[in-house]
Write a protein that binds this DNA or RNA. Structure first.
Lengths: 229, 229
DNA sequence: CTAGCTCAGTTGGTTAGAGCAGCTGACTCT
DNA sequence: AGAGTCAGCTGCTCTAACCAACTGAGCTAG
């Protein structure tokens, strides 16, 4: 009877055309509305929260979630860590996933990026080079670069999914102890080449640059694996 | 106090190296183990279930989940439907996401697919053509084609993510009423071209074929949008 | 009159206890 | 030996009460 509670709450959101950020009925109201106990309502809401559909704020209320892809990060990171500890090359798989997506992106992106976006990418690479001199590139800078890359596509979903993959990768690297980082100088050069290729409108070159970038990361990853076993 | 219950249960899985399918402690045991009420344990488990980390079976027990990307489908489909009803081109975004990923895939796939896989793809296209004569291509056949495509990559994560995107797209199309389907005959030809390009080892041609395929779907989608408004 | 505090009333968070419902396996009766 | 039953696991649902976070109205002190 209360097994399709999740669906019914989803329907409620759809039917009422509730936009992200809109307040949901309170737990007590939902309890009456759906003719079920509060426990079940709460369990359903928790599940919806895990999916990013709903946003629960203690003492304040429940709201329609931002519908971002952020929850993906959670599951993906966990899956990857768990797989890693069981001896799978899950981190490598995650990296390949990102590579496939970004490669496909670069193809469509080349020559279609506004000069403003290109300038921002230039600035980010410049900052990377600065930071590389001080030792290591800040994580935020790298994230900003990848985020700026797909902004030009005008596809929020794509951006968020990529961001989620990136975060998951990052998180897993942070969770796993043994890590050796790549040469930051070489990494900068690769980033610069990516921007150059896109500016030149050379789709093939852009893809090659991305692939090259990932190939480098991958080889370092493999090194890590070898030492870990 | 019980706010990081989720994390603690995840840790439990990691620490005990529980593989997918392994039995979790029962709710009552977890209650004692974590020193908290049963309600909270259940809420946490529900959330974990929504992330695919745990698999709950009534009257049987709770098990470590398959860690598949299937839950992604849920959230993605909902987000897309909700966005659509609010006037966004969310379905188009989802389609572009798939396109970017499959394009990136095709690049790496070309020439690297075993003959056995290619033969299977051939067979699937042949079946499509048969079904096209009877009216419309069965959904299962299309799914099988896309699934077979990435099997050659030996990257389960990639396959699952793609499958999740595909399912979400499919589900949304089914949920939304107004739909006009593409010409099945033309669709078959495009699928055949994709296989041919990959067999030829022509990375560029394979990408073009995929792009072409999606371009066709997209134009039909746009048509649908125009009529819907 | 205003700045700040307090408190009542909202919301979600947590707990305990009871009973329901699905599944398994051993035990019993035919 | 086979079929049916039942005890004992599991998760599911509900109730009722209380805790904790936050808001906003209203009061108080400056």
């Amino acid at each position: 009877m209360a097994s399709d509670l999740l669906e019914r709450i989803k329907e409620l959101i759809i039917d009422r055309r509730l936009p992200p950020g809109a307040p949901m009925p309170s737990e007590r109201e939902l309890t009456e509305l759906l003719g079920t106990g509060r426990t079940c309502v709460r369990e359903a809401l928790k599940a919806l929260q895990a999916m990013g559909i709903v946003d629960i704020r203690h003492g304040f209320g429940t709201y329609v979630g931002p519908m971002s892809m952020a929850p993906l990060t959670e599951g993906l990171a966990f899956r990857t860590v768990a797989g890693h500890y069981r001896g799978e090359d899950s981190l490598l798989q995650l990296l390949e996933l990102r590579e496939a997506l970004e490669t496909g992106l670069a193809g469509r992106l080349a020559g279609r990026l506004a000069e403003a976006d290109l300038a921002e990418l230039d600035a980010l690479v410049a900052r990377m080079e600065e930071e590389a001199l001080d030792g290591a590139v800040r994580v935020e800078t790298d994230r900003a670069f990848h985020a700026a890359l797909c902004r030009g596509l005008d596809n929020p979903l794509l951006s968020e999914v990529l961001e989620a993959f990136w975060s998951a990768y990052r998180r897993v690297r942070a969770d796993l102890p043994e890590q050796r980082s790549a040469d930051p100088r070489a990494s900068c050069a690769r980033h610069r080449e990516i921007v150059a290729a896109i500016r030149a409108g050379d789709s093939l070159r852009a893809q090659a640059a991305i692939r090259d970038h990932f190939c480098n990361i991958r080889s370092h990853l493999r090194l890590t694996y070898r030492f870990a076993r």
